[in-house]
Measured scan of single mutants.
Amino acid sequence: MAEQVALSRTQVCGILREELFQGDAFHQSDTHIFIIMGASGDLAKKKIYPTIWWLFRDGLLPENTFIVGYARSRLTVADIRKQSEPFFKATPEEKLKLEDFFARNSYVAGQYDDAASYQRLNSHMNALHLGSQANRLFYLALPPTVYEAVTKNIHESCMSQIGWNRIIVEKPFGRDLQSSDRLSNHISSLFREDQIYRIDHYLGKEMVQNLMVLRFANRIFGPIWNRDNIACVILTFKEPFGTEGRGGYFDEFGIIRDVMQNHLLQMLCLVAMEKPASTNSDDVRDEKVKVLKCISEVQANNVVLGQYVGNPDGEGEATKGYLDDPTVPRGSTTATFAAVVLYVENERWDGVPFILRCGKALNERKAEVRLQFHDVAGDIFHQQCKRNELVIRVQPNEAVYTKMMTKKPGMFFNPEESELDLTYGNRYKNVKLPDAYERLILDVFCGSQMHFVRSDELREAWRIFTPLLHQIELEKPKPIPYIYGSRGPTEADELMKRVGFQYEGTYKWVNP
């Protein structure tokens, strides 16, 4: 592979701008107003304001973009700056750019259920340069409990009458099928589907988006991507930290609602779906819905739930269990780990287990898709061969690698495990991989909904998990304890083995 010439960040961002501006969906010269509902909250200060700053800094926003914060707290732009700027990672050389960014910011205080507050917000936006005809993007960085009041008031008082209007809704989209349907029906009564952007930030990850290209742009994968060759698929999300004093919020939802029903299920769809007619948003989402419709409700015998306990040999936070978090209700049975087996009941995947695993306070930070292939028929190497695996590593250190057998150097035919490896950090030294939120917010500006969740996708996802969630809430089974920093409950490994996964433990990928 030829040595790549190092590029400056300015040059890299210039390439990104060229890609972005050559499309006809990006209205570079139009006025846009980006409204952050819930501007005083954690999500706004840690993710949304920093993301908008990065896009502005790199010249990736339309030229005439204004940012308006809205929340109940009586704040000023200076207050917003004070709480969000520490997350910007701005350099001293960017000081003038930073001043320009905050000059485009404003803030309006108001209630979430008060019509007069929204009329005041609308008047404020109209007073901005060309504000009355601007395109408006409303980001709901809010708890779902206020979605209905907020969307109703936005629709009645704050819509642009000339430009387009788009609304970005953060997960969780309800707690179960019934609450999700209620919320979807409410929002759909106010906005068209092409105006609604239900954001799952995992769909903005580079390697998640790469799944489609790997599958449908490489001839070698087509013939082997089926039940005849693939023994099982494992989708993993692991965090090495616990709730760390923020367990009160987590306890309301648990690990299945927080990660599995959305992030992991979306990745499953991209692995299992048929080739779409095109890369058009609805063509892709149509195929994802077909996959979900082929999955039956989760069966309790295919589920393992766990909850982390303190590690007596650990240090600091590792010595504390979930129930030691003062914000967690006493005696909570909320799971911090889950392993679930699903089956896609169609011709391509009949009988292939899709194993979804996620948890907190585990032994490493990792998100990946792992396809394990069947054993080689007619073994001539005296059971020395391990199964081939194709691994798409989402985070950290984005990579695609194939675990395969090669001859060990020497005189004899002794096979050993090795890999074919594409590590993004080595291959793409001159490429700026956008943060997931950067990519998705740019998608909203461009009107691309491919990486957002459609209402029928959402409904099918909740259909699969709601009976299990209701059973857990009714019966309150005690989750299996696992030690902070471990791989999780051993019962999860036993479940995976029972459905056909072979864990060798003899080879570990190392970032080159």
Results as ranks from 00 to 15, higher is better:
Ser188Val: 08
Lys82His: 12
His186Ser: 14
Gln133Ile: 13
Ile67Met: 07
Ser106Asn: 08
Arg198Asn: 00
Arg120Ile: 14
Phe216Gly: 00
Tyr112Gln: 02
Ser106Val: 11
Asp114His: 11
Gln119Ile: 13
Leu190Met: 12
Gly248Met: 05
Gln161Phe: 12
Gly41His: 06
Asn210Asp: 10
Glu94Arg: 01
Phe138Leu: 05
Lys89Ile: 08
Ala103Leu: 14
Ile67Phe: 12
Ser157Gly: 14
Leu98Ile: 12
Thr236Ser: 12
Ser117Met: 10
Phe191Leu: 09
Gln28His: 09
Asn185Leu: 11
Trp54Leu: 10
Val169Ile: 12
Arg198Glu: 04
Gly23Val: 14
Ala134Arg: 13
Ile168Tyr: 01
Gln161Leu: 15
Tyr112Cys: 03
Ser132Ala: 14
Ile220Gln: 03
Asp228Ile: 07
Asn226Pro: 02
Ile167His: 05
Ser188Cys: 08
Ser8Trp: 04
Lys45Ser: 10
Arg166His: 08
Pro240Thr: 12
Leu75Gly: 07
Ser117Cys: 11
Lys89Val: 09
Gln111Leu: 13
Phe250Gln: 01
Leu140Ala: 09
Gly254Lys: 03
Pro92Val: 09
Gln111Phe: 11
Met159Phe: 15
Trp54Ser: 07
Asn64Gln: 12
Phe34Cys: 09
Ser180Ile: 02
Glu93Gln: 13
Asn122Ser: 11
Ser29His: 12
Ala141Met: 03
Ile224Asp: 06
Gly110Tyr: 00
Met37Cys: 13
Arg104Asn: 07
Ile15Ala: 06
Ala25Trp: 14
Pro92Asn: 15
Gln22Asp: 15
Lys205Gly: 03
Ala149Pro: 14
Glu99Arg: 11
Glu206Cys: 07
Val12Trp: 14
Leu16Arg: 09
Cys232Thr: 11
Gln111Gly: 10
Gln209Ala: 09
Asp181Asn: 13
Arg227Cys: 08
Lys45Thr: 12
Met212Val: 03
Phe138Ser: 00
Pro143Glu: 04
Tyr147Gln: 02
Lys171Asp: 02
Phe21Lys: 15
Glu18Asp: 11
Ile196Leu: 12
Val169Leu: 07
Asp176Tyr: 01
Ile36His: 01
Ile33Met: 10
Asp200Phe: 02
Ser184Lys: 04
Leu140His: 07
Ala217Phe: 04
Asn105Glu: 02
Leu211Thr: 06
Gln22Tyr: 14
Ile167Leu: 11
Thr76Ser: 12
Arg182Asp: 13
Thr151Gln: 06
Leu7Pro: 14
Ile52Arg: 03
Phe173Gly: 00
Asp194Glu: 13
Gly110Phe: 03
Gln119Tyr: 14
Leu235Val: 09
Tyr118Ile: 08
Arg17Leu: 11
Gly23Gln: 15
Leu61Val: 11
Asn153Ala: 11
Thr243Lys: 01
Ile234Thr: 15
Lys45Phe: 06
Phe101Asp: 04
Thr91Gln: 14
Glu63Thr: 11
Gly242Ile: 03
Asp176Ile: 04
Gly23Ser: 15
Gly248Leu: 05
Val150Ala: 09
Ala90Asn: 10
Ile230Gly: 00
Glu244Gln: 10
Phe34Asn: 00
Thr31His: 06
Ile36Trp: 05
His186Asp: 07
Pro172Cys: 04
Phe101Ala: 03
Val233Ile: 13
His124Tyr: 11
Gly14Leu: 09
Asn210Pro: 01
Tyr202Asn: 04
Glu252Gly: 14
Tyr139Val: 05
Ser106Phe: 13
Phe56Ser: 03
Asp251Ile: 01
Ser73Val: 00
Trp164Arg: 07
Asn185Trp: 09
Lys82Ala: 12
Phe241Cys: 06
Glu94Cys: 09
Lys95Gln: 12
Pro92Cys: 14
Asp24Gly: 14
Leu183His: 02
Pro240Arg: 07
Ile52Trp: 01
Phe191Ile: 05
Lys95Asp: 09
Gln119His: 12
Leu203Lys: 00
Asp194Lys: 11
Lys152Pro: 00
Arg192Asp: 12
Met212Asp: 02
Asp79Glu: 14
Ile33Phe: 10
Arg17His: 15
Ser180Val: 04
Ile80Asp: 00
Phe101Cys: 03
Pro144Asn: 03
Leu61Ser: 00
Ala71Cys: 05
Glu148Cys: 09
Ile168Phe: 05
Gly59Thr: 04
Ala39Glu: 01
Lys238Trp: 00
Val68Ile: 13
Ser132Lys: 13
Phe34Thr: 07
Pro143Gln: 01
Lys89Asn: 14
Asn64Cys: 11
Glu85Asn: 06
Phe66Met: 12
Lys205Ser: 01
Ala71Glu: 02
Asn229Cys: 08
Tyr107Gly: 00
Trp225Pro: 02
Ile199Lys: 00
Glu206Asp: 06
Ser40Phe: 03
Ala116Asn: 13
Ala115His: 15
Ser188Ala: 14
Cys232Leu: 05
Asp194Thr: 12
Glu93Pro: 09
Tyr118Leu: 07
Gly110Ala: 08
Phe191Gln: 03
Ser157Val: 13
Arg120Asp: 14
Gly204Ala: 03
Gln11Val: 15
Thr145Leu: 06
Asn185Met: 11
Arg9Asn: 15
Thr236Gly: 02
Cys158Thr: 14
Phe26Tyr: 15
Glu239Phe: 01
Lys238Pro: 02
Asn122Ile: 09
Gln119Trp: 08
Ala141Asp: 02
Leu142Gly: 00
Trp225Gln: 03
Gly69Pro: 04
Tyr202Glu: 04
Glu94Ala: 05
Glu99Pro: 04
Thr145Tyr: 06
Leu235Met: 15
Val12Cys: 15
Tyr249Met: 02
Ser180Gly: 05
Leu142Val: 11
Ser180Lys: 00
Met212Lys: 04
Leu203Asn: 05
Leu183Glu: 01
Asn105Gln: 10
Val108Leu: 08
Leu235Thr: 05
Phe253Trp: 02
Ile67Lys: 04
Thr91Gly: 11
Val150Gln: 01
Gln195His: 08
Phe56Cys: 03
Ile67Gly: 01
Ile162Gly: 11
Leu121Ala: 07
Ala78Thr: 15
Asp181Ile: 05
Leu61Glu: 04
Glu99Ile: 08
Leu235Ser: 03
Pro50Gly: 05
Leu235Phe: 10
Glu99Gly: 10
Lys171Leu: 03
Val146Gly: 02
Arg198Val: 05
Phe250Tyr: 14
Glu99Asn: 14
Phe26Trp: 15
Phe34Trp: 07
Arg175Ser: 11
Gln22Thr: 14
Asn218Ser: 00
His124Phe: 14
Ser84Cys: 13
Gly131Asn: 15
Gly38Ala: 04
Asp228Asn: 09
Asn64Trp: 06
Gln119Ser: 13
Asp30Met: 08
Phe253Ile: 05
Glu252Gln: 15
Arg81Cys: 08
Val108Ala: 07
Arg57Ser: 06
Val68Phe: 07
Thr236Glu: 13
Asp58Phe: 10
Glu94Asp: 11
Tyr147Asn: 01
Leu140Gly: 06
Pro144Glu: 04
Tyr118Ala: 07
Asp113Gln: 14
Phe221Lys: 01
Asp200Cys: 01
Asp194Trp: 09
Gly131Met: 09
